[in-house]
């Protein structure tokens, strides 16, 4: 007979309680929905939904991965707040994605800063609740360069862009987050994209490769969530470099 049965202790109850002890992997997608993206909006919607579906197939991810999706053009909007994969209502997400209006300009700076605020709130909430979490992964997908309606608009956005460059660099230096920049198509401003990538290398893919891109994003989240083993900073950096490699491999295949 088991020692715990002898002691009158129900190990199953302990294990059930243990199941709720989790360490969260926060993942954030910042998606550009400016006017120029409209031509492949359908691909974008199906790819995001496929990403959620694919990740949800893994029971562990349902509990341990928290996803947040933010979209931006001239303004930004969080269409999915940090939510456990298992709790994501796919129908509602699909509805929200389909209701998006692909128009306006590309104000990346304000969106990136808002995304960091969202991550900070999530961190604070987790600390309050005594929950443990891993280094958040962020993917910024954009297809354009910033264009402004007025000079004040320009100044404001430039200021926010500058702030986001500094925040990304700080994030990378303090190892408090992984920020991946993926530019889609050839209408991007390489200088801005390079600055947004901070110390990392920005990725660029052809707009026909949207599905491939999201597959790689999904694989990266999957791999990070599957490998929540002890590691050091160097390995963690390598892990995300592998993501970049993966994308470039796809490009070569094309």
């Amino acid at each position: 007979m088991s020692i715990f049965t002898d002691l009158g202790i129900n190990v199953d109850n302990i294990n059930k309680r243990n199941a709720s002890y989790d360490r969260i992997l926060p993942a954030m997608l910042i998606i550009d929905i400016s006017g120029s993206v409209e031509k492949y909006s359908h691909k974008m919607i199906t790819s995001i939904l496929d990403l959620v579906k694919k990740l949800k197939k893994n029971d562990t991810h349902n509990n341990n991965v928290m996803l947040c999706i933010m979209v931006f053009n001239s303004s930004y909007k969080t269409i999915l707040e940090f939510t456990r994969l298992g709790d994501i209502d796919e129908k509602l997400l699909e509805k929200n994605l389909k209701e998006l209006h692909y128009h306006g300009r590309t104000h990346t700076g304000s969106a990136v800063m808002a995304a960091f605020d969202e991550i900070d709130s999530m961190r604070a909430a987790m600390r309050r609740e005594g929950r443990k979490f891993y280094v958040p992964i962020t993917f910024l997908v954009t297809d354009g360069n910033p264009n402004y309606t007025s000079s004040s608009d320009h100044q404001h956005e430039e200021k926010l862009l500058q702030e986001s460059y500094e925040t990304i660099l700080k994030l990378q230096e303090t190892k408090k987050g992984f920020f991946n920049v993926i530019s889609v198509g050839d209408n991007v401003d390489p200088e801005i994209i390079a600055k947004l990538a901070g110390k990392g290398t920005p990725l660029s893919i052809d707009q026909t490769d949207i599905e491939t891109l999201f597959e790689a994003v999904s694989d990266t989240i999957d791999s990070a969530a599957n490998n929540m083993d002890t590691m050091d900073e160097e390995t963690l950096n390598e892990k995300y470099d592998a993501f970049r490699q993966k994308i470039s491999n796809y490009e070569e295949d094309e």
Binding site: R23, K132, F133, Y134, V135, P136, T174, K175, K176, M228, D229, T230, M231, D232, E233, L236
Partner: peptide
């Protein structure tokens, strides 16, 4: 003391 995330630690090879 994990400064930030839980999956980063120091190793004897660090």
């Amino acid at each position: 003391e994990h400064e930030e995330a839980e999956n980063i630690t120091e190793l004897i090879t660090s």
